[in-house]
């Protein structure tokens, strides 16, 4: 193996580690804002893998898909934070365990 450069597989490993940390954040934290930030971390790790694979194949398509993911993430953050603010105004908390109005 050529030691002069970084293997693309290392980027994929890093992406997987960051994704796993993001999943832990989503499952462990109770504040809706923290869960949201962990989701952003997971989206970013997926983007890193996409860009790394684009580099592997020498094309630019993976970067464009990552760019579209970035735009969708921006839209998601705008709507999601608005929902969090609206929920906070109504029940004065962002604890996801308190959001059980739909409990059957």
């Amino acid at each position: 193996m050529d030691q002069s450069a970084v293997n693309i597989g290392l980027y994929v490993i890093l992406s997987g580690v960051l994704f796993t940390i993001g999943i832990v954040g989503v499952l462990v934290r109770r504040s809706a804002i923290m869960i949201f930030m962990a989701i952003e971390l997971m989206l970013n790790s997926a983007n890193l893998a996409l860009v790394a694979f684009a580099r592997q194949h020498g094309g630019v398509d993976g970067q464009i898909i990552a760019f579209l993911v970035m735009v969708i993430a921006a839209a998601e953050v705008a709507v999601g934070l608005t929902i969090i603010v609206a929920v906070f105004r109504r029940i004065k908390t962002v604890d996801v365990d308190k959001l059980h109005s739909l409990k059957g």
């Binding site: 970084v6 994929v12 997987g16 796993t20 940390i21 999943i23 499952l27 592997q56």
Partner: peptide, 27 residues
């Protein structure tokens, strides 16, 4: 469960590296 998932990720990535499907693309 996260450790299990991360191990699966690592196994897949290392398998891909060892099989030569992902390579060093150059400096």
């Amino acid at each position: 469960l996260a450790v299990v998932l991360g191990t699966v990720f690592l196994i897949v990535a290392f398998a891909a590296i060892l099989s030569g499907q992902v390579t060093v693309p150059g400096a």
